[in-house]
Design a protein around this nucleic acid. Sequence first.
DNA 1: ACTATGACTCCCA
DNA 2: GTGGGAGCCATAG
Length: 107
Amino acid sequence: MEGRSFAKRVCDAVKLIPEGKVATYRAVARCAGNPRAARAAGNTLHRNPFRTVPCHRVVRSDGSVGGFARGSGVKAALLKEEGIAIHRKKVAPEYILYHLDAHAASH
DNA sequence: ACTATGACTCCCA
DNA sequence: GTGGGAGCCATAG
């Protein structure tokens, strides 16, 4: 398990986010093993061409859509398609998962 | 090994 | 609500 880089664990964490829901960079970082590495987590998603994970479901702690390699507008559009209400670049708190784990998908 | 980078977050004016 | 500054961290060069 230790051989897996932080990036790999971030990838796995993001995959746990169910459709129609979003998680904060912090939640992802925490699930990846470092609660304080939210910045690094976002950095990883940005630099890596991860199309194998729903990276658009990761937002900022305040609900802001945040950034996206292809433009935040695209990110917001993708979220809307999943039925997530967005008002002025912000996701409603009810869609946000502040605690991400294998149980998150169950809800 | 060191420096720079950035899709973050917190705190205060 | 907005904006600037500092702290934090993994990864790339």
